[in-house]
């Protein structure tokens, strides 16, 4: 498997006359073809900003970038207009939380998918419609021929999300970006869409970056999980290691505070406090103010991302300390 995407020391800063937001503060990761990287984080952690940076979707005039994003060797952050428009939709596709906004309400689903196919492949009218039909079949939309003629508002939330996945895969992208695509869906529909994404990913051999705030969802779809906090990846590990032996106090806290089976009657282990204000660049570890294990050197300078073996990366000064005390 070759490196499909290389993100190195990505910084994203939003500058407005009123204030500056340091949304992403040095994020690095790789994604291979056929692999799913889950990015787990709470609101304001910079997970969506990181994802959108890969397509450079942020308003250019008030966004300051730093670092590098390379897709199959091409630098995205310095890419010209035409290369960028090739990138969007054709090499990299994206699915969003709210499918209603991804479709134009005045055209049918079939029209919009066929139109995209035609634009990117130069196929004729009839060919692109039959391709659109194939795509709807592929995402398991029942009676696809009829659904092609449906308008977005005539479909249920789950169907729209499937149609959006069909649209995203219409041009055989190498990388699929998923921004909380199942958050707005009902539980019984969410699991169907998760399974569909997992299946299509294998079938198409695409790389997927799946951003979510829900640990369960991340565990269902990801091969590796990166946990983000205050614009940084604090821990990146294969999914089994992340679930079995998280090393960063934040990842631990997140897992411990997520309610699941068998916690009834126990007191939940909440992380005290709230995430930091992103207006200032942190001088030390961003999590230090909420951390139970804070050390004097945590506030001196930000800890580095350290390799813990088995491609398990942790950004914590205590990462190599034996767990005995930490687990307590």
């Amino acid at each position: 498997m070759s490196e499909l995407l290389q993100v190195r020391d990505l910084h994203v800063k939003f500058v407005t006359p009123d204030r500056t937001v340091n949304a992403v503060n040095g994020v690095s990761f790789d994604v291979k073809r056929g692999e799913t990287l889950g990015i787990l984080g709470e609101s304001g952690s910079g997970k969506s900003v990181t994802l959108r940076s890969i397509l450079r979707l942020h308003p250019e005039h008030r966004t300051r970038w730093g670092g590098s994003i390379k897709l199959e060797g091409d630098e995205v952050l310095t890419m010209g207009k035409s290369a960028l428009s090739d990138l969007r939709g054709q090499r990299v596709a994206m699915i969003f939380q709210e499918p209603a906004t991804a479709f134009d309400p005045v055209f049918t689903i079939g029209h919009q998918i066929a139109e995209t196919v035609r634009r990117h492949t130069g196929k004729g009218e009839a060919d692109s419609w039959s391709r659109a039909r194939e795509l709807l079949e592929m995402v398991r939309i029942p009676s696809p021929a009829q659904r092609l003629k449906a308008y977005p508002h005539e479909m249920s939330g789950g169907m729209r999300q499937r149609a959006m996945i069909a649209l995203a895969l219409s041009c055989n992208p190498a990388l699929l970006l998923a921004d909380e695509p199942t958050t707005a869906l009902d539980a019984t529909v969410q699991i169907q869409v998760l399974l569909l994404i997992r299946e299509l990913q294998r079938e198409f051999n695409v790389g997927v970056i799946f951003v979510t705030h829900d640990i369960g969802v991340a565990v269902e779809v990801s091969d590796r999980i990166g946990v983000m906090y205050a614009g940084k990846i604090v821990e990146l590990a294969p999914v089994e290691q992340m679930v079995d032996a998280p090393r960063h106090p934040y990842s631990r806290g997140l897992l411990a505070s997520t309610v699941h089976d068998g916690m009834r009657g126990q007191r939940l282990e909440a992380i005290p406090g709230a995430p930091p204000d992103l207006a200032e660049v942190p001088t030390g570890c961003s999590f230090a103010p909420r951390c139970k294990f804070v050390q004097p050197n945590c506030i001196v300078r930000p800890p580095d991302l350290r390799e813990m073996g088995g491609s398990h990366l942790v950004r914590c000064v205590l990462a190599d300390v034996q767990e005995a005390g930490v687990a307590a």
Binding site: E42, G253, L254, S257, T258, A270, I271
Partner: peptide, 11 residues
């Protein structure tokens, strides 16, 4: 609410 905050509120 975010999970870490959700736990605080549930407690």
């Amino acid at each position: 609410l975010d999970k870490s905050v959700e736990a605080q509120v549930l407690n």
